[in-house]
């Protein structure tokens, strides 16, 4: 017996968003190390080598990881539950029944806005039960949030 993959993928633009994030995460420390390496003569070797290693690793991640992530990140909303799969090395499947959902939020960071993406956050009464669907088209995210709010409002009870 196993879990089947949820049936929807994220928006394709999420790959670009992840790429930019990884690129930024690589560029900042690499630039810092490189600048320091150029300024401080005696320690040049000790600063430029890690900078080069980091740059190579970071670029490799930027090239390969987002595509992989795109294949493994999936989501699905049925009438009964929200079902999300995330993670590549550490896969995670999260299921929250509609009857236990307390709030539905959408969130858009500056970078996400540039890619016209949004994150839907579904919270339950558990302090550890929040489900995030990152990288949806922003209009689709708004529709989804509205749909979820409508369904959950129709269910009585305090969701604990």
């Amino acid at each position: 017996m196993r879990l089947r993959p949820p049936n929807s993928t994220l928006n394709e633009r999420v790959v670009g968003w992840w790429r930019v994030q990884l690129l930024l995460a690589t560029a900042i420390p690499v630039t810092l190390l490189a600048v320091l390496g150029l300024l401080i003569g005696p320690a040049r070797l000790w600063l430029l080598t890690p900078a080069a290693v980091l740059a190579v690793l970071g670029l490799a991640c930027t090239l390969f990881l987002p595509n992989w992530w795109f294949r493994v990140h999936r989501w699905e909303v049925t009438d009964e539950a929200v079902y999300v799969r995330t993670g590549a090395f550490w896969q995670e499947w999260r299921i929250a029944p509609m009857s236990r959902i307390q709030t539905v939020d959408t969130m858009r960071g500056p970078l996400e806005q540039a890619f016209r993406l949004a994150t839907v956050i579904v919270t339950t009464a558990s302090s550890k039960g929040a489900i995030k669907i990152e990288g949806l088209d922003h209009e689709q995210a708004a529709q989804l949030a509205e749909q979820l709010t409508r369904i959950t409002r129709a269910i009585p009870g305090d969701a604990t």
Binding site: G87, W90, W93, R94, I95, S126, G129
Partner: peptide, 15 residues
């Protein structure tokens, strides 16, 4: 009845 969701986790090694 108090369970309000499941999270299933599996690392590469666990898989």
């Amino acid at each position: 009845g108090g369970v309000i969701g499941w999270t299933v986790k599996q690392s590469v090694f666990q898989r």
